[in-house]
Structure formats: C-alpha cells, structure tokens
Design a protein around this nucleic acid. Sequence first.
DNA 1: AAAGTAAGTATCGACTCGATACTTATTTCA
DNA 2: TGAAATAAGTATCGAGTCGATACTTACTTT
Lengths: 188, 188
Amino acid sequence: MESNQLYNHLERLSELLRTDLRKSGIEHGLQPVQLEVLHYLSVCNRYSDTPLAVTEYLGQTKGTVSQTIKVLEQKGLLLKRSDTEDRRVSHLELTKKGHKLLDRLVPPPMLIKACDKLPQKAHKQINHALHQLIMALLQSNGMKSFGVCHTCRYNGRSEDGGYYCNLVQQPLSVDDVQRICREHETAA
Amino acid sequence: MESNQLYNHLERLSELLRTDLRKSGIEHGLQPVQLEVLHYLSVCNRYSDTPLAVTEYLGQTKGTVSQTIKVLEQKGLLLKRSDTEDRRVSHLELTKKGHKLLDRLVPPPMLIKACDKLPQKAHKQINHALHQLIMALLQSNGMKSFGVCHTCRYNGRSEDGGYYCNLVQQPLSVDDVQRICREHETAA
DNA sequence: AAAGTAAGTATCGACTCGATACTTATTTCA
DNA sequence: TGAAATAAGTATCGAGTCGATACTTACTTT
C-alpha cells in the first residue's frame, strides 16, 4: 500500500499543526477553526469573502460557519456588511484588531522556527511537494481549487493592460490577482 | 515572510484531510480524533501502547485522552489491559473489530485516489518532503520524534544477531523495529 | 403573483478538550 | 520502614465544535 506512509506523515503533520494552533489560539481565546476563518479572510478576494465561501473552503455546513462568524464578530475581529446588489449576501472583513491578532499568530511560531532551520532548497522542495499533493487531492476528488486569480483560466488582460476577470467581467488590481478566489479554475 | 506560503499549504492540506476523515468516520460513528487514536495504536510498539503515550503523541491532556479511550473501549474497538509489572499502567490493543474498521477507513479514500494519479517519482518526492518537514518541526521545537525503532539510537544487535533495544534492555523482533516508539531518539 | 431557490440564522444534541480534583500504585528518602 | 512525593489514569464540569433540521429573508423563474 503506497499511500500508507504518506498518510502517516500527513496525519502527524496535521496533528502537530493543529495542536500548535490550539495552544497559541487559546491564549487569545480563539479556537483552531476560528483562526482558520480569520486566515482565510486575510487571503481571499472580494468575491470570496462571504460565509458561503468560507463554508466551501472549510468543508463544513453553513450553520456551523455561521456560528463561528458570529463569535468572531462579537469579539470584534471581523465586520459583516450586506452586499449592495444582493442583500442575501454578506461580506466579511477583518478589523484592524483582527489583522493584528492574525499577524501575531500566523504562521504559528512552531512553523517559523522549523523554517529557519531548513535550507532554502529544502524549503522550496517542500513547498512544491505540498502544492503538488494538494492539486492531486482536489483534482482527483472534483473539489474547488481555491487558487489565486493569477493562475485562473478566467484571468485575462483588459485593453489598458490591467488584469481582468472574464467570469465576473471586472478589472482586477495587482493585489487582487494574488488573492484566493472561490471561483478559481485551473488554467488548461 | 518565507513560511507564509508553506503555512497556506499546510493549513489547506490539514483541513482537507480532517474534513475527509470526519466524513468517513461519521458513517461509523467515529470522530476524527478517535480514528487518530486507533491509527496510532495500530502502528506503535508494545512500549508505546499506553494512554500516556497517546497523550504525548496527540499533544492533548491525559484527561481528554482518557475519555476518548473510554468511548473506543465501549464501542468494542480496543481492549485495555493492566501492565503486570506496574499496575498504574494500561496497555491498549485494537480488537479484531477495530483492525477491520481501520483497514476500511485508513488511509482515507480521498488520499488513495490522489495517490493513484500521482507518478511514482512525485510520490517519493512528496513523502521525502513531508518527512523532512516533520523532522524539522520536531527538532526545532524539542519534541519527541515518535520514530520507528529501526532508526533509533538505542537500537542495536544482540549476540544471536537479532535486534536489541539498549534503553529497555530487551530483544526486538523484525516486526518490532518497524513500529513507532515513544522513547525514540534520532540516531546521532 | 406564486413557486422555487439561494444565503444566512437559530436551535438542539452529541461530541471535544482543557482544567481541576481525585484515586491508586510506585518511588524516594529521611 | 513509613511518610511524602510522584506517576498513571479517571471523573466531572464548562466552553466550544459541528451536523441536522427548520426557519427567515431575498432573489429568480415562469
């Protein structure tokens, strides 16, 4: 069984990460899943900052995510605003307090320490390997990729040379194209 | 910040794995953490099959682990036996039912699918990268390695040519040296 | 306008997990 | 040798997770 060893590693890694996340989060009254939501919101684009997008990203139900968001809002770490076009939709935005907290906790200190000791080359290899694995997982299970616009098949250029999304038919800034989008589809 | 991208990947991977584990576990009435305990017990050696070892491996408190184990015992997935030498200590052992269940759920189908699509070479690279990362994490944070006896500094040979552990002063079988030990220390 | 659908919320129950206090067994050491 | 310290594990509590279900509100379809 080839995937056995791989699973051993993944489970261990996952457990180490989660334990560390729990430990550093608890000092600020945050659960692992809450940190994950904050982190996601800090890297997603303006079409992907809704509760539903979080739901898809985390693979939970919308009820569960709704709870998590409520708590984060009460803690003053994020702000909820109704969409002006479709009032069923909410947009979530980190507050300054939220950003500050995230900056201190993510990436977790444990990981930073480990990275410092790794040579540049190993670092690159690991990053590449992880990316490859994630892609394989998503593709072979027909899941959304949640990649950055830059690598999306809908991403193009407008006449003035700027970036342009052919799906939502909107221009994108340089910052935009480096953010995660829930509509992302890998370029062919 | 070099570790940022790495963290993005790790968090995503961890989340994907956990969601899948939750989904497949729920069908058998098992939580992710319960599956992790079962899996650990299936790969650890006879010095590492105690509640305390599980506690260290999962990075939780002994109270929490005690609960988890109690549930698994009630479900008939594992057996608890008192140590004959030190009656404070319990040894945990998967039942046939436990082994059967684990065989069906681990590795998770999602991962198996992904592995099938990955070329042999990529598979090896990913495995190596993960191992390297785990080692870096454990070393730079002074944590127990939980490696297999085969790679331990205490592992040696006895006069008759068999394996021998210089820490517990006991001979080890061929099967033994491929199992995870809580006393494991990386060879110098 | 009515039915259908989508986004999000409210509530409930089973479960996790840390904290604290406890029991029992072993070790230390005066 | 006997009391204190320590170790392994359990019991209990409370805050929080998470899925299921039912609901509200808003948009879409026909």
